[in-house]
Amino acid sequence: MRSDPTQFALTAPASLQAVLAQLAQNPGTHIPIAGGTELMVALAAGRLPRHSFLSISHLPELRFIRITPDAIHLGANTTFTDIRRNPTIAADLPLLTLAASWTGSIANQNRATLGGNLCNASPAADTPPALLVYDATVTLISSGAAPGEIVQRTLPYRDFYLAYKSTVLRPDELLHTITIPRAYSVHRHFLRKVGTRNAQAISKTALAALALVSESPATTSDSPSTTPCARHIQTIRLAAASLADRPIRLYATEAALQNASLAPAHLDATLRRARAAFATEAHPIDDIRSTARYRTAVAANLLEDFLRSLTT
């Protein structure tokens, strides 16, 4: 049953400080609402837990794309359309542009924010795998002791999630900035989403990958299948959606592939080691969108596709 809108409070405090002050006053009483494309669906379904909302969508302090020589800084209210229209993001972080283009229809992308996608903490969301392989950091803000003072803390985005639909955000905190290094111009970028259909489908699983391939001698090789002068993986980062209760980096698979050979004679061994490591850290579930077996099998195939693509 749809909820009755008269039962909900919603205000739009005039400034970021005012929002933070209200969040701090009675932590847990108010929920921030940005583009509303998650919360309004929950409202329609009658499953909104709390009844008081603070709109943050009108705050210019949260909607910005700042480009510096070393990094791209995205305000939490950056919409998927803002991301798709930015040529520097398309050039430097193609996986983010691609993920943004998948997040529902154009009408949805015009409202939906990057901050909302991360804070909603769905294990199936589209932008987290890309941000995980790009090693993003997140800056969280809250009210300080002095009136109007804003305190912030910055942490690696890979440490943002605690469990299913749970993040490190305290009830008095807002996500303010997502920062991504501009360090991947010579890397290979890969992102594949498998859903029921192309348009507007939540993923069954998705894999993002970033790797640096080298032909020069490997420096710290202790793996038997590595031939020093042959083509090999110098660095690799892997992240996935819907393989666990939250978006995850695949650290064990990454470790297994560090300095792994891509030479034709060793490729099968590399793929075997990758699949074995992957099996230890993929823990998907059965749900309405897919089964655990399907998810594991498909994601492992995506991983193999990526690794094979590195041989040329």
Partner: peptide
């Protein structure tokens, strides 16, 4: 935008 997902205040 889809007006079914926008609160009047926004």
């Amino acid at each position: 935008v889809n007006s079914c997902l926008i609160p009047a205040l926004q």
